[in-house]
């Protein structure tokens, strides 16, 4: 009986820790996405799916679904990173499309 209570307590504690870690991870991922998206915006090349993923991350975070928040934020960050790469490479490559 006593052992049982101990196991339950440990499980609850474990869940709590996991929950807290999820919250921290989600917040970190959201901050990472925000930073990358700021660079993309400054390069005049934000993608609409990055905005959508970021909004989804914030909504999931507010609803306490930290796993979903983290996944969406990581997607937003990856999209922003791709748009930054696009904008930087276009700084050179756009010239190739000009009729001469």
């Amino acid at each position: 009986m006593k052992r049982m209570a101990l196991v339950v307590a440990a499980a609850v504690l474990g869940l709590g820790v996991a929950h807290a870690a999820g919250k921290v991870d989600a917040a970190r991922a959201i901050a990472g996405a925000a930073a990358k998206m700021k660079i993309a915006a400054a390069l005049d090349d934000q993608w609409t799916p990055a905005i959508a993923a970021f909004k989804a991350a914030k909504a999931a975070d507010a609803a306490g679904d930290y796993a979903k928040a983290e996944a969406s934020a990581k997607r937003a960050e990856a999209l922003a990173a791709a748009s930054i790469a696009q904008a930087r490479s276009q700084k050179r490559l756009w010239q190739n499309a000009v009729p001469r």
Binding site: D44, D45, W47, T48, P49, L79, A82, S83, Q86, A87, Q90, K91, L93, W94, Q95, A97, V98
Partner: peptide, 16 residues
């Protein structure tokens, strides 16, 4: 001119 010829967006198209 640069804006017009630069690819942008997830679909990677320029105006041109």
């Amino acid at each position: 001119k640069e804006y017009f010829y630069s690819r942008r967006g997830q679909l990677n198209f320029s105006c041109a």
